[in-house]
Design a binder for these strands. Structure first.
Length: 876
RNA sequence: GGGCCUGUAGCUCAGCUGGUCAGAGCGCCGCGCUUACACCGCGGAGGUCGCCGGUUCGAAACCGGCCGGGCCCACCA
């Protein structure tokens, strides 16, 4: 026989060597085929292939301590469809899976689960046993937690996340992700830590990483600095307080503030340089109420005349505008808010009046909330509060995981240059973004907007304990003060290191913390500082350069649109700096899953279906179908009812296949296809193959699926019915039908394989060798050759004629088996030729055993009239 | 305030660069156990394509405005 597809696979002998089951079913296909695929290592990566032969995917590592939801299933299915398609196109697909166990969610979970907390100053205890296991989110308070070393903490994390990872892997396998499960990584693993540290050291050596002491956004709950990308503006209730400052000669200058507790931190009053109302005050000083501190009245264009009183109290620091004024007007620093969000306990020395010092004594150690009440009470008493506070709803910056507004605290932090302070670098990164193919394209705008709007470099240090530590120490001078300007860096071959327990070369352990000795950098890297290196971690940049060369730069980054500003951008930054190229050529952005109320699905709403239940109840192919039906970048509403569509399709694939394979040996020889209807069907299929392929090349899996599916339903409902009797018969007509059925089935299974991996593999196993998932993607040319010059419209015309006959019976409320003794079909002129070509098949499918007259009509559809019906008949 | 996406049958969505586009599936109604399939098949009823203007011979599709939904950024006096 002629092999239908010019495939790299060996020409398979005529099939039929296996059994088509008497009853087909989807039951158990997931278990059966997953076991088979694992046993065959079907998705194993062949690392002998070169970069040109490889299609590599930078899979998003799910946060293991997070919960699974249908959104995961949704977006990971999109990626798997791409992976399976590329594999069938002959690419060697590099499709690893990572687990993100870095960051606060894991840190909190380990704390609560084991009742411990990380204290990097402690030594490692090899035989440590946690106080308990299995605590829930509320069971352990900070005070009850046993402090342990970072290394012990990481070990507990690894222990805990093993379960999470197993759960994810089970789900992913059930879903049918064609991941190479030997290629998994964890972001807290030694190799990942080493990659993160090595990349950082190189950034440092090239001057891309630097430290600075500066005011920055600070979360008082987690007591850590926060990066711009982690901000979230939320509504926050506040109140305007109209407060009097005292000018010369007892005049009062009113400002409005929502943060009266910052009054002791006031360093100036500021108005717009052109504001007539305040011209006379510029250059003079005023005295703050209650605290009696003399501050200048200054002009700055950043002041807005129509905001509040038009003149603002500048404090160090109430907001980012304060920071700007402080920097540009070179104002003194008078901080009163501590890292815990409470007012500093020591009375500041700039408070010189007795009353001011006494009042501050009461404020010391208070939360901003309590301090505000005290200050307002004082202002009211002194008569410096004009009227009552006016409630307002304002936006405040929050850490995305925090629940208190961010404060601004001065601290020493590590930064990586990302173009936020450097136009040349920003332009380079914008150019990288333009080079990247976003799917859908409009997502590129989000990248441009974000990069264009950066207002500072990337803050990568966090004052947390669990994570990748900075691989640096600082020499201590004779007074025991660290020399931050001259860090001692680890060498690359030492990595990974933990500076809190490892000792820098040239020092001994007992020199830690003593004058003349050294001290570890206490901070850890932000989780994105590690995640931004997933291509390097998964690809073996540090540990396996040979592999890295074969997979990097990668082909695809799949991810959600919400983390374009974080994960996508930071990965581009790192790759640009380290490798001078994009980390991947394409980015596929999946949408959100919304619940039926059009809200983003969240577990708190209690309406979340667990993904595993969904897979078990409806079958993986059905859920995959649902996911694949949503275009990239488009949000999709979750509706359980939609699951049955894919299930119906998968079952239909089984049943139609059973029929197509029910005639004994399946001959795939195109030369046997001689009947016009059969050729027409193949002509239509050829078009579908071309269009579906083009769609997949353009990352439009939805269109590809829709094309195949539409063809397939017509194939089942019309074509199969039309050829059924002929196929059951004998002779050239039967041979033609059977060969066409076999060829179509062969093609359709391949077309559906990326979306319905289980059903297609099940059918494939009935009659073919090997796996459909390693079979070649279909090509149109052989189909078109077999179709000769047949027009696809013969199938639709014959289908329309058949439908007209069916309608007669439906309206007569009789069985479809009912014989038609006589009927006239009014056929539009344009269809007449096509109908005539398939008339015998129409006749037999419609049981039109008697006279069937064709009349040319000028209508648009085929209509049956003057029918006389007989009795139900049985075929065969 | 700026930007991106979005508003088509009860529901979920297709409608590609303006001219069989008014569609599919689910749901609903009616009929039918038909040797692939009752986890089914066949037939049918459902929409002034958010609203108002404009461009055009012609708009669901293009332009402008408005209204509604989602997301991102900016806005803390």
């Amino acid at each position: 026989m002629t092999d239908l597809n010019a495939a790299p696979e060996p020409a398979h002998p005529t099939a039929g060597t296996r059994q088509v089951p008497d009853r087909v079913s989807l039951d158990g296909v997931e278990e059966r085929w997953n076991a088979a695929w694992t046993a065959q290592d079907l998705y194993g990566f062949d690392r002998t292939k070169t970069r040109e032969q490889v299609y590599s995917i930078d899979t998003p590592p799910p946060t293991v301590s997070g919960s699974l939801h249908v959104g995961h299933v949704f977006s990971y299915t999109h990626t798997d469809v791409v992976a399976r398609y590329r594999r069938m196109q002959g690419a060697e697909v590099f499709y690893p899976m990572g687990w993100d166990d870095n960051g606060l969610p894991t840190e909190r979970r380990v704390q609560n689960y084991f009742g411990v907390r990380c204290d990097p100053s402690l030594p490692y205890e090899p035989d440590f046993t946690p106080p308990f296991e299995g605590g829930d989110n509320k069971s352990s308070k900070a005070g009850d937690q046993v402090p342990i070393s970072r290394r012990n903490f990481v070990e507990l994390c690894e222990r805990l996340t093993v379960d999470d990872e197993r759960q994810f892997e089970t789900l992913w396998r059930r879903l049918g992700l064609s991941v190479d499960w030997s290629k998994t990584y964890q972001t807290i693993s030694g190799d990942a830590r080493a990659v993160a540290q090595q990349a950082f050291l190189r950034n440092l050596a090239r001057g891309e990483a630097y430290q600075a002491e500066a005011p920055g956004l600070w979360d008082v709950t987690f007591q850590t600095a926060v990066a711009q990308a982690e901000l979230e503006a939320r509504d926050y209730p506040g109140a305007y307080h109209r407060v009097a400052f005292h000018g010369v000669g007892g005049t009062k200058v009113y400002i409005e503030t929502t943060r009266p507790e910052l009054l002791p931190a006031c360093v100036a009053l500021i108005a717009h340089p052109d504001d007539e109302r305040y011209q006379h005050l510029f250059g003079t000083t005023v005295t703050s109420p209650l605290f009696g501190v003399e501050v200048p009245v200054l002009a700055h264009p950043g002041a807005e005349r129509d905001k509040g009183a038009g003149i603002a109290m500048c404090c160090t620091f109430g907001d980012l505008t304060d920071v700007q004024w402080w920097r540009e007007l070179q104002l003194p620093t008078r901080s009163v808010i501590g890292r815990n969000g409470r007012l500093l306990s020591e009375t500041p020395d700039w408070l010189s009046t007795d009353a001011g010092q006494a009042l501050y004594g009461e404020l010391a150690g208070k939360t901003t909330f309590s301090a505000r009440e005290l200050v307002v009470a004082g202002l009211r008493e002194s008569g410096d509060l004009d009227g009552e506070p006016v409630k307002t709803q304002r936006k405040a910056n929050f850490y995305e995981k925090g629940d208190k507004p961010l404060e601004i605290v001065t601290s020493r932090q590590w930064y990586i240059r990302n173009g936020g302070r450097d136009a040349a670098l920003r332009d380079e990164l914008l150019a990288r973004g333009a080079e990247l193919d976003f799917h859908p394209e409009f997502m590129a705008v989000r990248y441009e907007n974000w990069v264009g709007g950066l207002n500072g470099d990337w803050l990568i240090s966090r004052q947390r304990f669990f994570g990748v530590p900075f691989p640096v120490w600082y020499p201590l001078d004779a007074d025991g003060e660290p020399d931050h300007e001259n860090p001692i860096v680890a060498s690359e071959d030492q990595l990974p290191i933990d500076p809190s327990s490892d000792v820098p070369v040239g020092y001994t352990a007992d020199q830690r913390g003593v004058p003349g000795g050294f001290v570890a950098d206490p901070d850890i890297m932000d989780t994105w500082a590690t995640s931004s290196l997933t291509p390097q971690i998964a690809g073996g940049w540090r540990s396996d350069p040979d592999l890295f060369e074969r997979v990097f730069p990668m082909n695809l980054r799949p991810q959600g649109q919400d983390i374009i500003r974080t994960w996508l951008f930071s990965t581009v930054v790192r790759s640009h700096q380290e490798h001078g190229c994009l980390p991947w050529s394409d980015a596929a952005i999946s949408g959100w899953i919304l619940d039926p109320d059009r809200k983003k699905m969240s577990k708190s709403k209690g309406n979340v279906v667990t993904p595993m239940d969904l897979l078990v109840e409806h079958g993986s192919d059905a859920v995959r179908y649902w996911a694949a039906s949503a275009r990239l970048g488009t949000d999709a509403a979750f509706e359980v009812g939609q699951m049955k569509i894919g299930r119906r399709l998968a079952i239909k694939v089984l049943n139609a296949s059973k029929f197509a394979l029910s005639f004994g040996t399946v001959e795939l020889d195109p030369a046997l296809v001689t009947v016009p209807l059969d050729r027409a069907m193949l002509a239509g299929l050829a078009d579908v193959v071309d269009r579906a392929t083009a769609s997949l090349e353009a990352y439009d899996h939805t269109r590809a699926l829709e094309l195949s599916e539409t063809f397939f339903w017509t194939f089942c409902d019309d074509y199969l019915e039309l050829v059924k009797d002929r196929a059951y018969g004998e002779g050239a007509g039967a041979d033609s039908a059977r060969a066409a059925l076999g060829i179509a089935l062969d093609t359709l299974l391949r077309l559906f394989a990326p979306v319905l991996p289980f059903a297609t593999e099940e059918v494939w196993s009935w009659w073919r060798e090997g796996s459909v998932h390693r079979a070649a993607w279909p090509v149109a040319e052989p189909l078109r050759a077999a179709a000769a010059d047949a027009s696809p419209t013969v199938v639709s015309a014959a289908g329309a004629a058949l439908a007209a006959l069916r309608k007669v019976k439906s309206e007569a409320k009789v069985s479809m088996r009912t014989e038609i003794l006589a009927v006239t079909l009014d056929v539009p002129a344009a269809l007449r030729g096509d109908v005539e070509l398939a008339l015998d098949d129409v006749r037999s499918a419609g049981r039109a055993t008697g006279t069937l007259d064709l009349a040319t009509s000028d209508g648009e559809s085929v209509v049956a009239r003057d029918a006389s019906l007989g009795e139900p008949v049985t075929r065969g």
